[in-house]
Amino acid sequence: MSEKKKRSFEHVIRERWCKGCNVCVTFCPKKVLSLKNGKVFAERPDDCIGCRLCELRCPDFAITIKERIAVQAESDSSCVDYAIPPEANHA
């Protein structure tokens, strides 16, 4: 497990659209995000596991999670089975 290269993610934030509702911050399973001056920003981007729940729930379309491709290009769909917190799996 520890052999697996740690994946890293970039948080594209469209501040102009963000209304600071705090939903993404509250429900981030790794507490990556926080609010600054009423807008979201990625305070601990290295902790991000790429579950994209912030992006999906954001009512303002203000966040996009992009995976930084390190060595081998992985397709986006491979993210699905990777450490999604159980609470994300209500479907």
Partner: peptide, 29 residues
């Protein structure tokens, strides 16, 4: 994956909904 943004009229955003309004989440979905 942000190709869903192509389905928006981005020049019309931000929207009129209140902070935290669920309508944005549904529209995004």
């Amino acid at each position: 994956m942000s190709e869903n943004l192509n389905y928006f009229r981005q020049n019309r955003l931000p929207h009129i909904w209140c902070p935290g309004c669920g309508h944005g989440t549904v529209t995004g979905a």
